[in-house]
Design a protein around this nucleic acid. Structure first.
Length: 778
RNA sequence: GGCCUCGUAGGCUAGUGGCAAACCCUCUCGUUUACACCGAGAUGUUGAAGGUUCGAUUCCUUCCGAGGCCACCA
């Protein structure tokens, strides 16, 4: 059978036998995973394959360790990407439909496209429980999201306020600090001439945003600025618009920057917002929500057009002292790429600034893997300047379950029993004045819902899953959003941490750059899966340390493919002569017993590594043991007995082969689940109690054997001597099985005194003499 | 400007206060009773300098280089 067919067969077997289903009735300890719900848009990409493989190693290990693993699967569908996808597939425009209709269409479409989307994850061998999937836009998610909104409101953690919020003029919505990106841009840095009232004096102010002149509300100078000191308290006259603004001393003005004098506009940036509030200035709002100006003579022009026009006008009036091109960084909204504006609107905020310390304390209670990733989190929390804006002026999303009284502005909350609710579908009356209340039309930020994945999923399973969960796996790019907001919600609502461990995965790079669609350097995992199989791809994903970015190398995938082949072949050899389950012989051959000590040692190190979430080291150890120790050494050593040995010698060999192969397969099962299952089903299943290797017990390390190994490393010494002999044979350009006469030092001989016969057989030595190490060919 | 991570063979990565490891590539051999999707071997001033130490690739300091996060962007 082709590997692909084998994998398909095994996937079907797992599904049929419900190997990965969460068992609600089980009394086993629960290991719960807050699986990241991927956004449904196209197919699985390499970053997904990398990250989901890594979390799957842990899930599979824990399952074999006897945990009742809770590993759900969901999709994140309440954001812009889904809205666009549905619009494209169904050829509709979201805003032309009612929200409820669009959500229903979305749910219906998801049902259609989900099976093929999820198939990518199944094909990779991701062992989630696919039986009960969730979507962040489904009824349960909307219900929980709205319930927690109401809860926060009742607790006074959410407030509504008119505030110059970060605004995206493309999508015309407020956005959160976490959704901003930096972009380097070339722009004109113009030094403009302002007049001082009551004199002919001129002051020079540099700006990159001359179109905001009409919004200028003050001019700042530094109190230590001796040169400009005399201006303090006077009024400046804004060019073109000719309105007067106060000249204020403010120590935040940097004498080194620009001309040392700056203008405050409502609002150019965050600094302006602070300045206006601090000095209680009356804002002049000249930018509309759609990014046009509302002030003559630039009314209706876009920001960009207005900037060009005003510079032209300024130049014509000789108001531009000088102009130069500079490169600087601007804040853009990550989804639109448009420069953000600060526009006063009424928005809903979650109080987060008051709790910065708590959020850091909460994070410290969580085990961060790798540890240093907590620094990024702390960095982010310390740098927060805004409360979290959770309302969005989007059509699609989880509606805010609120109505306002038109008369007295009283807020009417949805009842718990009504959830999930779209307030635009229900009419409510104000409790105070009995007048009709208007529905809130805004929706919640997608993070406001996805930050509740532990609660959402737990609710789906009748709250059997307790918070904190055992593990949150996620990428480092969303520490400031998903990880942060989830910690925020669990703390604000429940005063708890959401999970005990957080496992941060790195990016996949190609030629040193992050693999991403926009850079056009993507490799499609489906092609790789078809060519080399899922085990091979997972093998590659296991090759780097947790949290590190990793360079995609097809060579590593090929190495994984080779391992799969080797495992099949080694298993074939083991069972070639073995017709029934070997019993433990009364007495093991010495070399077998010593080999089992070595095997026991790998069990021990591999277990320690997995307990540490260090799957890459575990894989490395087992892989090396299998290849070097088991295949190259032990199988060669044991061959003579398998072919020529007497009954006892054979029994000892068969027992050791059976036991060690099964152990190695189990140790590798989390990494390469398909080939290990295939071998298990073909050879072991009929003798073992478990129907799948993935629910079989993880091998136990035996303390006595570990102690024995400390005292006796004869097997290891034997290996070294074998290597030396092979080296000599290679040097002499002889074949590995060429017959030799071996001379060994007394020291070497005594190290392996119980294994002399094994050495003879494996190196085809006719006799072993005493003396300096040497080999002679017969 | 602040913080974080990384720098190990031609490539991609492990690892350790005591002989530096695997895989791929290249080269030289061998092999066909598990495996040619095979086996054996060859390939290194561990980015640089200094310090701690009997001993540093590992710990510390500085520098150089790469990447990331954040801030600043009048």
């Amino acid at each position: 059978m082709e590997p692909k067919e084998v994998e398909e067969k095994i996937i079907k077997f797992w599904e049929k036998e419900k190997i990965y289903s969460f068992d609600k009735k089980s009394r086993k300890k629960i290991y719960s995973i807050d699986t990241p719900p991927p956004t449904v848009s196209g197919n699985m990409h390499m970053g997904h394959a990398f990250m989901y493989s890594q979390m799957d190693f842990i899930a599979r290990y824990k399952r074999m360790r006897g945990f009742n693993v809770f590993y759900p699967f969901g999709t994140d569908d309440n954001g812009l990407p889904t809205e666009k996808l549905i619009e494209k597939i169904k050829n509709v425009i979201s805003k032309n439909m009612s929200r409820t209709d669009f959500i229903n269409l979305c749910l219906k479409t998801l049902k259609e496209i989900l099976p093929s989307f999820v198939q990518d994850w199944k094909n990779l061998g991701i062992s989630c429980d696919y039986g009960k999937m969730y979507s962040t836009i489904d009824d349960n998610s909307r219900k929980i999201s709205q319930r927690y909104f109401l809860d926060a409101y009742k607790k006074g953690l959410i407030y509504k306020k008119e505030f110059p919020a970060i605004w995206d003029t493309t999508f015309q919505t407020a956005v959160a600090q976490a959704e901003l990106e930096d972009r380097e841009q070339e722009t004109l840095f113009s030094t403009l001439r302002f007049k001082v009232k009551g004199s002919n004096e001129e002051i020079l102010i540099a700006t990159t945003r001359p179109e905001l002149l009409g919004a200028c509300v003050a001019v700042f100078i530094n109190p230590n600025d001796k040169k400009n000191k005399k201006l303090a308290g006077k009024k400046a006259i804004v060019p073109i618009f000719n309105h007067e603004v106060p000249i204020i001393e403010d120590k935040s003005a940097d004498m080194e920057k620009g001309t040392g004098i700056l203008m405050i506009c409502s609002y150019g940036d965050k600094y302006d917002v602070d300045a206006v509030i601090r000095h209680k200035l009356i804002p002049r709002i000249i930018i509309n929500k759609d990014g046009t100006l509302n002030i003559n003579p630039y009314k209706g022009l876009s920001i960009k057009k207005a900037r060009e026009k005003i510079l032209e006008d300024l130049k014509n009036k000789d108001l531009v002292k000088e102009q130069k091109k500079i490169k600087h960084f601007v804040n853009v909204y990550e989804k639109s790429g448009t420069e953000i504006e600060f526009i006063p609107t009424i928005q809903w905020f979650v109080k987060i600034l008051d709790f910065k310390k708590d959020f850091i304390n909460q994070a410290k209670k969580i085990n961060w893997l790798p540890n240093h990733m907590i620094k990024r989190y702390e960095n982010w929390v310390n740098g927060l300047d805004w409360d979290w804006i959770i309302s969005r002026e989007r059509h699609f999303g989880v509606p805010i379950p609120i109505w306002y009284c038109e008369e007295c502005n009283e807020i009417v909350l949805a009842n718990e029993s009504e959830l999930p609710v779209d307030p635009t579908n229900i009419s409510k009356k104000c409790k105070k004045c009995k007048k009709k209340a208007t529905p809130e039309t805004k929706v919640l930020d997608t993070w406001a819902t996805s930050s509740l994945t532990p609660q959402i999923v737990s609710h789906l399973y009748e709250n059997k899953i307790k918070i904190p969960y055992s593990l949150r796996p996620q990428g480092h790019d969303i520490i400031r959003t998903w990880a942060f907001y989830t910690i925020v919600r669990s703390f604000l609502h429940e005063k708890t941490i959401p999970w005990k461990n957080i496992f941060i995965t790195g990016n996949v790079t190609l030629k040193g750059e992050k693999m991403s669609k926009s850079k056009g350097n993507v490799v499609d995992p489906q092609t790789i899966l078809k060519k080399y199989g899922a085990d091979a791809l997972r093998y590659w994903a296991a090759s780097s340390k947790l949290g590190d970015d990793v360079e995609y190398q097809e060579n590593d995938v090929i190495a994984g493919k080779k391992l799969v082949t080797k495992m099949l072949n080694a298993s074939k050899f083991v069972f070639m002569n073995l017709k029934k389950k070997p019993k433990k012989p009364k007495k093991l051959e010495k070399v077998d017993d010593l080999f089992l000590d070595e095997l026991n040692n790998v069990v021990s190190t591999s277990t320690i590594r997995f307990e540490d979430y260090n799957y890459s080291r575990a894989k490395f150890n087992v892989d090396e043991f299998f290849w070097k120790n088991f295949c190259d050494k032990y199988l060669e050593i044991v061959k003579w007995r398998v072919y020529n040995g007497n009954k006892e010698e054979k029994e000892s060999a068969f027992y050791t082969l059976y036991h060690s192969l099964l152990t190695i397969l189990k140790l590798m099962a989390p990494i390469v689940p398909f080939v290990t299952e295939e071998v298990y089903q073909t050879y072991f299943e009929k003798y073992e109690k478990d129907k799948s290797i993935h629910i079989s017990d993880w091998p136990k390390s035996d303390k006595k054997r570990r102690e024995k190994l400390q005292k006796n490393r004869a097997y290891y010494e034997l290996g070294l001597i074998i290597d030396k002999i092979r080296q000599e044979k290679t040097k002499a350009q002889k074949s590995m099985n060429s017959e030799i006469i071996l001379t060994l030092t007394k020291e070497d001989k005594s190290k392996i005194k119980e294994l002399i016969d094994d050495l003879k057989h494996v190196t085809n030595a006719r006799e072993i003499k005493d003396g300096e190490f040497k080999i002679e060919f017969t």
